[in-house]
């Protein structure tokens, strides 16, 4: 009986996915791409962040390059990375993404937050290569820029 129920549940899931199977695959690729974008942010933030913490020596050239990269990432047109139907409440995506449906239901709030991030990174790109104190002083505004979206539009991490 239990087994039968299990099979029935599987069939329901499969048929639900069947109709949108091709789309689901595309969406997963898109989600992978936007997560890669986040990794690129993190990689460049690591360069300036470790200097701010004093873990690596301050290098003006490296810092300026990383800050310029961060700005380039923010300026890149990433509209196609955020299609409708790619949030964690969409079918089959619960374990793939933490993007909340509010991204789409509260538009244009996300775009406004992204503009704030770009503005913060424009400033950061002008100060990061000056000296260590300027780099340190600029980190908070960059963090605020990232937080702008991550506070409202990303679900809490599930515990393993």
């Amino acid at each position: 009986m239990i087994k039968l129920k299990g099979i029935a549940a599987t069939l329901v899931t499969v048929s639900a996915l069947g109709s949108s199977g091709a789309f689901a695959q595309d969406v997963e690729k898109i989600i992978e791409a936007r997560q890669s974008l986040m990794h690129l942010y993190a990689f460049n933030l690591g360069t300036v962040g470790e200097m701010a913490k004093g873990n690596t020596e301050y290098d003006a050239q490296l810092a300026a390059t990383a800050a310029q990269n961060l700005l380039a990432l923010a300026q890149m047109n990433s509209d196609r990375l955020w299609p409708q139907g790619s949030s964690k409440v969409d079918p089959g995506l619960e374990d793939t993404t933490r993007a909340l449906p509010e991204i789409w239901t509260t538009m244009p709030k996300l775009s406004e937050k992204h503009t704030d991030l770009t503005t913060a990174l424009e400033t950061f790109a002008t100060v990061a290569g000056k000296d260590l104190a300027s780099l340190r002083g600029g980190m908070k505004a960059v963090g605020d820029g990232c937080k702008g979206c991550h506070q409202d539009f990303r679900a809490k991490k599930e515990d393993s």
């Binding site: 942010y41 962040g49 701010a52 873990n55 990232c146």
Partner: peptide
Amino acid sequence: WSEADIAEYLSSGFTPDYDVVGSEMADVV
């Protein structure tokens, strides 16, 4: 996390992996 990691997190919100603080903790930071 090192002490520097914790202090940085409480200032800019960045974790040692350069993810950023979210949820209720964002208000705390």
